[in-house]
């Protein structure tokens, strides 16, 4: 470990949002799929603990969690548009041309067509995908979920066909969302060798310098540049050089290519 420096990643507010999001999401996954697979071992296990009213409890908890999820989402929208940090967050999460180039380069790098890893800013294409997938998923799940919840009301507008469609979307989107979180998000948070065993930003709020160097070199660069600008404006060029040197030093090259 090169340094114990802390680089703020998630503010306390964001961590609470994230925590509410993840807990409601996990509860929704469990209580949702419990309906679909009533005979599976884990549902039976839960039923053995809770007893007779498992099914009703499941429905109620699913709805409570969904309310939590929707409330967090609505707050998040407010957060994005009415707080300073939120506005910046929204700006940083917006996809742009650079993400497409980054993605292309990254793919080339991963399949061995290129030996330089693209350098990411505050949010890489990976994180942006994650974020927008959650936005999309919450939106879809929310709409179809509410239709399913208030079926007596919505039946009038969507007919039984609409109910069937909602329920199909809700189910398949649930699968998609759950798998995406597990495969995409959990990989980068847990298995990713750069952060292994876990990216603790969701708990502590900061990343280490090493993690920053690996995952967000451009952000690190800008933040350090800002720091230097602020403290020693006249030394800015020197600092830039240093950063560049550092970047070169830690630039990750494919060992295979090195051998050649």
């Amino acid at each position: 470990m090169k340094t114990e420096d802390k680089y703020l990643r998630m503010s306390a507010n964001e961590r609470v949002q994230h925590f509410l999001l993840l807990s409601s999401f996990i509860v929704l996954v469990i209580t949702g799929f419990a309906l679909k697979f009533p005979e599976s071992f884990w549902v039976k296990g839960i039923a053995a603990v809770i007893g007779q009213n498992t099914f009703e409890a499941r429905g109620i908890v699913h709805r409570i969690a969904s309310v939590v999820l929707v409330m967090v989402s609505l707050y998040h929208v407010y957060y994005l548009f009415f707080t300073v940090r939120g506005k910046q967050l929204f700006k940083d999460f917006l996809p742009n041309r650079q993400d497409v180039t980054d993605f292309m380069n990254s793919m080339k790098y991963l399949i061995g067509k290129s030996d330089t890893k693209p350098l990411f800013g505050r949010f890489s294409y990976i994180e942006k995908m994650e974020y927008w997938a959650v936005v999309w998923g919450t939106f879809i799940m929310g709409i179809t979920g509410v239709i399913l919840w208030f079926e007596n009301f919505f039946l009038k507008y969507v007919t039984n066909t609409g109910m069937d469609i909602s329920s199909a979307i809700h189910y398949y989107e649930a699968i998609l969302a759950s798998l995406a979180i597990v495969v995409w998000h959990f990989y980068f948070i847990f298995l990713n060798p750069d952060v292994y065993p876990m990216n603790k930003a969701w708990l502590k709020g900061y990343l280490t310098r090493e993690q920053m160097e690996h995952e967000h070199p451009l952000e690190l660069e800008t933040s350090e540049k800002q720091n230097t600008d602020n403290i020693k404006e006249n030394l800015s060029e020197k600092a830039k050089d240093e950063t560049e040197t550092k970047n070169i030093a830690v630039s990750e090259t494919d060992p295979d290519i090195n051998k050649q």
């Binding site: 793919m107 790098y109 991963l110 399949i111 398949y172 699968i175 998609l176 798998l179 995406a180 495969v183 995409w184 990989y187 980068f188 298995l191 990713n192 060798p193 750069d194 990750e252 090259t253 494919d254 060992p255 295979d256």
Partner: peptide, 24 residues
């Protein structure tokens, strides 16, 4: 969508993991 997206994700992450391990 599920097969496409999740398939891509799996592939992406397997490659990512291998690469990062090698560099490490």
């Amino acid at each position: 969508l599920i097969f496409g997206i999740i398939g891509f994700m799996v592939l992406h992450n397997v490659l990512d993991w291998k690469k990062k391990k090698k560099i490490k």
